[in-house]
Design a protein around this nucleic acid. Sequence first.
DNA 1: CTCGTATATGACTTGACGGGCATATGAAGC
DNA 2: GCTTCATATGCCCGTCAAGTCATATACGAG
Lengths: 116, 116
Amino acid sequence: MESSFAIIAEPNRRAILSLLAASEHSVGEIEHQLRMPQTSVSKHLRVLRDAGFVESRIDAQRRVYRIRPEPLMEVDEWLAPFRRFWTAHVDALERHLDQMDSESEPEPASKKGKKR
Amino acid sequence: MESSFAIIAEPNRRAILSLLAASEHSVGEIEHQLRMPQTSVSKHLRVLRDAGFVESRIDAQRRVYRIRPEPLMEVDEWLAPFRRFWTAHVDALERHLDQMDSESEPEPASKKGKKR
DNA sequence: CTCGTATATGACTTGACGGGCATATGAAGC
DNA sequence: GCTTCATATGCCCGTCAAGTCATATACGAG
């Protein structure tokens, strides 16, 4: 029920997400990397999972978590109407150019301009 | 002190921001448009202003508020590392309406239909 | 100056959320 | 079986933020 925005309002959760953005991690790895209590990590992961930000894979007794993009896409889309405030000039051009693929993409171009 | 993320966690504040994204508005206009109590609008605007999301101009007894982009840019930048999760396998369609153009859209010549 | 309009602020209440701690679940290995 | 490692959950508590109501400030009109 929580809006995606409320979920990422929590700094520790953002830290977890940023960590998972690089690659998937187990709970213990997150705990150690971010130096926060395990129970706290588990609770935040629970919230993140319920909200669809992450999903977990079971590896023996570990749970390995990874990003699920949908809720963040939602945030990204909400930002769309505001982008005109800062992409007034050059950027708009560029994005328009390299977004020019539609239903015809028989071969995903390996490198795309990935500016930001 | 509040992170920009905490600010936009509040639904009413997001509504205000979205309203201001279209054009600047006075407090009364926001109050009427969003059908929320004036004191609530004022308080949210205070929070938004303190956090740099909006600024106000004085027009007689009215205060006209408009967007300031910086904090939202910050959010946009935080999202950057995650974009690879959806820009990789998603074409221009899914991209959704990003930024079409500014306050002038004389020609509704949008290209293709949207999905959802 | 008084009144009405427009907006801001303060006090108070209420509810939600995160932290900490203890404990439960579960899988692995002996 | 029992023990250990890895993770999850339940409970309590303090804090903080949002809503409501009342009131204050500021400006314009007459």
